[in-house]
């Protein structure tokens, strides 16, 4: 099948970028979206041009590396699917596709379709953990946890840190991402001792990184490849205010 691509090309963070048009030949419907780009890249290299840079690694929807907006939709048109799991059979002959990087002030473009997502790591370092040194744990079954809670916690923990939520959000808010970690641990007994501190620390870093506020537009939920619910954002909203109003003394940086 034949398609037309408009791909964002940008040399580095400092230079200006623009959309370039490509018409890859021989697109096979069984190819994954990234394999289609691979084939295009092979052509480009052979022509002496710089290949299109895009983040990818596992190619099975779990590492969260791949990150591109396809026709205005982060990870493309299929629900609950990362770009690497998207297959060309989701498109039709003659389709015209716009491929752009995640757009957010906090995620500056590094090159072409690759953006800098290290703000997520810095948010994690501000409380996305249970402080338990190796070797100090009790027996795993000493603490029964209801299956419902464990399952709910798992659903929040399924976040792959891809950043599609930010890319989809008109405010470039990373609230869905932050809420997954806060929720995962807030739902489990292990997470309770640091629950307030975690919500405060992670949210403060979120704001500091320049992500916007959540105005509950829910685009993130629709774009999230793991279909994570904004129910988690509500939990974050709750925990953060509870911490602010009643436990301001938990405001300590992670470096203690």
């Amino acid at each position: 099948m034949k398609i037309k691509l408009h791909v964002w090309r940008q040399k580095n963070a400092k230079s200006a970028g623009k959309l370039e048009t490509y018409s890859p030949s021989d697109v096979n419907p069984n190819m994954s979206f990234l394999e289609m780009l691979d084939v295009l890249n092979e052509d480009l290299i052979k022509k002496g041009e710089d290949a299109i840079s895009f983040d990818h690694d596992c190619r099975e929807g779990i590492c969260g590396s791949c990150s591109m907006v396809i026709n205005g939709r982060p990870h493309g048109p299929s629900k609950g699917t990362t770009a690497c799991q998207l297959h060309m059979r989701s498109f039709k002959e003659g389709d015209e596709l716009y491929i752009e990087p995640w757009r957010a002030g906090a995620f500056p473009v590094v090159k072409d379709l690759i953006v800098d997502r290290t703000p997520f790591d810095r948010i994690m370092a501000k409380g996305g953990f249970v402080s338990v040194n190796t070797g100090s744990a009790q027996d795993a079954n000493a603490l029964p946890i209801s299956k419902d809670l464990a399952d709910k916690s798992f659903e929040a923990a399924a976040c792959i840190g891809c950043g599609a939520c930010v890319a989809a959000c008109k405010n470039s808010s990373a609230m869905l991402f932050v809420s997954t970690k806060v929720s995962q641990l807030a739902l489990l007994p292990q997470g309770q001792p640091e629950r307030m501190r975690r919500a405060l620390g992670m949210l403060r870093q979120h704001d500091e990184e320049g992500f916007g506020a959540c105005t509950n537009t829910k685009a993130c939920e629709a774009a999230c490849p793991k279909e994570i619910s904004i129910e988690n954002i509500a939990r974050l909203n709750r925990d953060f205010m509870k911490a602010t109003l009643f436990y301001p003394e938990h405001e300590t940086s992670a470096s203690e």
Binding site: E100, R103, G105, C169, N171, S172, T215, K218, A219
Partner: peptide
């Protein structure tokens, strides 16, 4: 908040499809 949110998202997409969000939520 509106200023903050605009600043957080300075570059628009060439093609955007605000899937999942309602018109009214985007135009508050």
């Amino acid at each position: 908040l509106t200023k903050r949110n605009r600043a957080a998202n300075p570059i628009p997409y060439a093609s955007s499809a605000w899937k999942g969000s309602s018109w009214s939520s985007r135009n508050m």
